[in-house]
Structure formats: structure tokens, C-alpha cells
């Protein structure tokens, strides 16, 4: 971890894979990149096996472009769709067992702050609704109760997409799925309110319809987690396979859901609000 590990030793450029050389020369290591520059630099995440038109893949693409310090970040994921893309990025990735992502992240963050007390090291958990709110519920909640300083991002596709379409706690009430033929009997869990009650200092809920806003939210969540405590983002990332959304309508669906129940919502404590007012109103450094 750190910039010195990313750079290629002098004289070895022509022996390294082309993608890696591009990543160091035209990538985002050591630079502050605006998410609007997407498509004009080499991205951290590489080709991955996620389905065509998957909006979880899109969210992950924007997530990597939004990282404030990619060279000092560790991403933790678990079983589920998101790990297919997360493991293909040039950022260290740890694969937790199903449900224990936030426990692993707690230990890792504590270890990093002992090993590198004077450096910034970010830990980010990205897992699905199953990994965080169903199976990993206890460990997620307890990491928040203990006020561990890392970011938790839930990519909510409202179904167990990998295993054939079982209902999850986050599926909307009444929805009929391949492995829930009678329709779901219970309400969708209100993860945002749970996070607020459990002690998160920054909580946001969004549908990925505006890349600039996604990037700003992710950046804020990571910066707040460095100084204050746990932060949580609940992102709607539709499963176009299990919910039978034609791929070209995926963005339309996200815009529809944004109007219905995934409108942008952001909540933070007063001290976090003060912190952002201070750093975001400072004159910006010249961007690369």
C-alpha cells in the first residue's frame, strides 16, 4: 500500500503488462480526479464478468473513480455480485466470509491505525443487501455500535442475484421472484434509519442516476469515516436479470425508483457538517 508500491522500478517499464503501465501513467494514482473525467483516464477497475447493463457494475466503476486516496485504500467485499468487479481492480481487495465483512474491516482498520499511526489508510466495505443486512446483520450492527472508523456501502439489488433469485430482507413487499413465487410477505428493511440509530455519523441513500453526486457522497463518506466514526451509504443497484429489466432500460428504472422510494437522502451529525463546511469551502487545489 502506498504510492511507492504502485510505481514501476526504473528500467522495468517495458517488461510490465501494458494495462499496468497505462494505469501508472494515465491512471488516478496520486492525483485527485474529477468523476466527470471518466473515459479520459485509465480506470482502476478492469474488465469483469458482471452481466451486461448491470448497474451495480456502474456504481462500482464510479466508486473507484471517486476514491480520495486509491493507493491507501483497502476494499472488503463478500460473496455476492459486487465481488466479481471489486476483485478486478488495482486496489487491495479482501474477500470476507459471508456476513463477516464488517468484523474483518474493524480489525483491519484498528491494525492499520496501529501500524501506520501518522498515515491515512481508508477501509471500505462494499457488500450487497444479503451480506450486510441479512446474513451479516449482527456484525454490521456491532461495528456501528462500536463506532469503528470505516465506510460501509450497501449495493442493494433487492434480491439474491447469484443464487437464482431468493427474496432478501431488502426486497420490496409483495415482489414476486423466481424463488419467492408467493410474493414477499414483509416490508423492506429501513437500513438508513437503522444506521442512524446505531451510531453512524454520515448516512446517505441514493440511486445511481447522477455520477457527480455519487462521487461526492462516496468521498464525503470516506472522509467522515477517517475522523469521526462509521459511515453508511445505501445505493440502489438494480438486478436487471432477476427483476427482468431490459438492459437499455436500466437507467430508466433507476430514475423511476429515484422518484418513488430512492430519492437522494443525506444525513450527518453536526460535527461532520462543520467539518465538510470547512474543507469544501476552502479554495480548491489545482486538479490534475
Amino acid at each position: 500500500m502506498g504510492l511507492e508500491y504502485v510505481r514501476i522500478s526504473p528500467g522495468f517499464e517495458r517488461y510490465m503488462p501494458k494495462d499496468y503501465v497505462d494505469l501508472v501513467q494515465y491512471g488516478q494514482f496520486g492525483k485527485q480526479i474529477d468523476v466527470q473525467m471518466l473515459g479520459q483516464f485509465k480506470e482502476l477497475v478492469e474488465e469483469h464478468p458482471m452481466c451486461a447493463g448491470c448497474f451495480m457494475a456502474y456504481f462500482i466503476r464510479v466508486f473507484y473513480a471517486a476514491l480520495p486516496n486509491p493507493e491507501d485504500t483497502i476494499v472488503i467485499g463478500t460473496a455476492g455480485c459486487a465481488r466479481l468487479a471489486l476483485s478486478q481492480a488495482a486496489v487491495p481487495f479482501i474477500y470476507g466470509n459471508y456476513g463477516d465483512t464488517n468484523a474483518v474491516a474493524s480489525g483491519l482498520k484498528r491494525a492499520l491505525s496501529i501500524r501506520f499511526p501518522d498515515k491515512i489508510k481508508d477501509v471500505v466495505v462494499i457488500a450487497g443487501d444479503g451480506g450486510l443486512i441479512d446474513i451479516g446483520f449482527g456484525m454490521t450492527m456491532h461495528s456501528w455500535f462500536r463506532r469503528e472508523k470505516f465506510t460501509t456501502i450497501m449495493v442493494d439489488n433487492e434480491v439474491y442475484g447469484n443464487t437464482g433469485g431468493q427474496e432478501s430482507g431488502m426486497s420490496p413487499k409483495g415482489v414476486q421472484l423466481k424463488m419467492a413465487p408467493k410474493g414477499k410477505q414483509f416490508d423492506k428493511i429501513n437500513a438508513v434509519e437503522l444506521a442512524k440509530v446505531a451510531g453512524c455519523v454520515y448516512v446517505a441513500k441514493l440511486a445511481p442516476t447522477n455520477p457527480k453526486r455519487i462521487a461526492k457522497t462516496i468521498r464525503r463518506a470516506i472522509l467522515a469515516a477517517r475522523h469521526f466514526g462509521p459511515t453508511f451509504i445505501h445505493a440502489y443497484t438494480s438486478c436487471n436479470i432477476e427483476y427482468s429489466i431490459p438492459t437499455e432500460k436500466v437507467l430508466e428504472d433507476a430514475r423511476k425508483r429515484e422518484k418513488q422510494d430512492f430519492g437522494f437522502y443525506e444525513w450527518m451529525t453536526d460535527e461532520v457538517k462543520e467539518f465538510f463546511e470547512e474543507i469544501e469551502n476552502k479554495p480548491q487545489e489545482v486538479k490534475a
Binding site: L38, G39, Q40, H48, Y58, R61, P211
Partner: peptide
Amino acid sequence: CKQCVLFCPEPNTLMYHDSKHVA
């Protein structure tokens, strides 16, 4: 405009040409 580039789910796929100003 490059709006299409900002909404492609695949990384390094739909790119933007700086000098020609086309995707």
C-alpha cells in the same frame, strides 16, 4: 457532451477522445 461515457457500466470501454471531442 460525453454523457454516454459517464453512464457506461463497463470500465475503459466507452471512452472520450480529448482532441477530436467524440466518444
